[in-house]
Deep mutational scan, measured.
Amino acid sequence: GTVHVGDKTYHFPTPDAAKKFAQEIAKKLNLQVTVKNGTWQVH
């Protein structure tokens, strides 16, 4: 899975790992999470 946070991109071996990371970052930074075609965006 891929997660975009601002101008950074993180790659994870599984979709679940990407989802978990995106949700944790969003919670920590009080941001929104959207997913499109398996790519997570934190914004």
Results as ranks from 00 to 15, higher is better:
residue 1 G to W: 13
residue 1 G to E: 06
residue 1 G to C: 15
residue 1 G to F: 14
residue 1 G to D: 07
residue 2 T to C: 12
residue 2 T to S: 09
residue 2 T to L: 09
residue 2 T to F: 08
residue 2 T to G: 04
residue 3 V to F: 01
residue 3 V to A: 04
residue 3 V to N: 00
residue 3 V to T: 02
residue 3 V to C: 04
residue 3 V to G: 01
residue 3 V to E: 01
residue 4 H to S: 08
residue 4 H to L: 14
residue 4 H to V: 15
residue 4 H to F: 10
residue 5 V to Y: 09
residue 5 V to S: 02
residue 5 V to Q: 02
residue 6 G to A: 06
residue 6 G to C: 14
residue 6 G to S: 04
residue 6 G to N: 08
residue 6 G to Q: 06
residue 6 G to L: 13
residue 6 G to W: 12
residue 6 G to D: 05
residue 7 D to R: 14
residue 7 D to L: 12
residue 7 D to H: 14
residue 7 D to G: 14
residue 8 K to S: 06
residue 8 K to H: 11
residue 8 K to Q: 10
residue 8 K to E: 07
residue 8 K to M: 10
residue 8 K to A: 07
residue 9 T to V: 14
residue 9 T to Y: 13
residue 9 T to L: 12
residue 10 Y to M: 04
residue 10 Y to T: 02
residue 10 Y to A: 01
residue 10 Y to D: 00
residue 10 Y to K: 01
residue 10 Y to W: 07
residue 10 Y to P: 01
residue 11 H to K: 09
residue 11 H to E: 06
residue 11 H to G: 04
residue 11 H to Q: 07
residue 12 F to P: 01
residue 12 F to D: 00
residue 12 F to M: 02
residue 13 P to G: 08
residue 13 P to F: 08
residue 13 P to H: 09
residue 13 P to Q: 11
residue 13 P to Y: 07
residue 14 T to C: 07
residue 14 T to N: 09
residue 14 T to P: 01
residue 14 T to L: 04
residue 14 T to A: 04
residue 15 P to Y: 14
residue 15 P to F: 13
residue 15 P to A: 14
residue 15 P to Q: 15
residue 16 D to V: 08
residue 16 D to S: 11
residue 16 D to I: 08
residue 17 A to H: 07
residue 17 A to E: 12
residue 17 A to V: 05
residue 17 A to L: 13
residue 17 A to K: 08
residue 17 A to C: 07
residue 18 A to H: 00
residue 18 A to N: 00
residue 18 A to S: 02
residue 18 A to W: 02
residue 18 A to F: 02
residue 19 K to G: 08
residue 19 K to S: 10
residue 19 K to N: 07
residue 19 K to R: 13
residue 20 K to R: 13
residue 20 K to F: 09
residue 21 F to G: 01
residue 21 F to L: 01
residue 21 F to W: 10
residue 21 F to M: 03
residue 21 F to T: 01
residue 21 F to Y: 07
residue 22 A to M: 02
residue 22 A to S: 02
residue 22 A to T: 01
residue 23 Q to Y: 15
residue 23 Q to C: 14
residue 23 Q to I: 15
residue 24 E to I: 12
residue 24 E to Q: 11
residue 24 E to D: 11
residue 25 I to Q: 05
residue 25 I to D: 00
residue 25 I to E: 04
residue 25 I to K: 02
residue 25 I to T: 06
residue 25 I to Y: 06
residue 25 I to V: 10
residue 26 A to H: 02
residue 26 A to Q: 03
residue 26 A to S: 06
residue 26 A to R: 02
residue 26 A to M: 04
residue 26 A to P: 00
residue 27 K to Y: 07
residue 27 K to V: 08
residue 27 K to S: 10
residue 27 K to L: 11
residue 27 K to H: 09
residue 28 K to P: 02
residue 28 K to E: 09
residue 28 K to Y: 08
residue 29 L to V: 03
residue 29 L to Q: 04
residue 29 L to T: 05
residue 29 L to C: 10
residue 30 N to I: 03
residue 30 N to R: 06
residue 30 N to K: 07
residue 30 N to H: 11
residue 30 N to T: 04
residue 31 L to D: 02
residue 31 L to K: 04
residue 31 L to E: 04
residue 31 L to N: 03
residue 32 Q to M: 12
residue 32 Q to T: 14
residue 32 Q to Y: 06
residue 32 Q to H: 13
residue 32 Q to N: 10
residue 32 Q to E: 11
residue 32 Q to L: 12
residue 33 V to Q: 02
residue 33 V to M: 08
residue 33 V to W: 05
residue 33 V to D: 01
residue 33 V to Y: 06
residue 33 V to A: 10
residue 34 T to Y: 08
residue 34 T to R: 06
residue 34 T to I: 09
residue 35 V to Y: 15
residue 35 V to T: 07
residue 35 V to Q: 12
residue 35 V to N: 13
residue 35 V to L: 14
residue 35 V to I: 11
residue 36 K to E: 12
residue 36 K to L: 13
residue 36 K to N: 12
residue 36 K to V: 15
residue 36 K to I: 15
residue 37 N to I: 03
residue 37 N to Y: 04
residue 37 N to E: 10
residue 37 N to W: 03
residue 38 G to V: 03
residue 38 G to D: 10
residue 38 G to H: 09
residue 38 G to K: 05
residue 38 G to R: 05
residue 38 G to Y: 06
residue 39 T to R: 12
residue 40 W to I: 13
residue 40 W to H: 05
residue 40 W to E: 03
residue 40 W to S: 03
residue 40 W to F: 15
residue 40 W to A: 04
residue 40 W to L: 11
residue 41 Q to M: 13
residue 41 Q to V: 15
residue 41 Q to L: 15
residue 41 Q to G: 05
residue 41 Q to F: 15
residue 42 V to W: 03
residue 42 V to K: 01
residue 42 V to F: 04
residue 42 V to M: 03
residue 42 V to S: 02
residue 43 H to F: 13
residue 43 H to V: 14
residue 43 H to D: 10
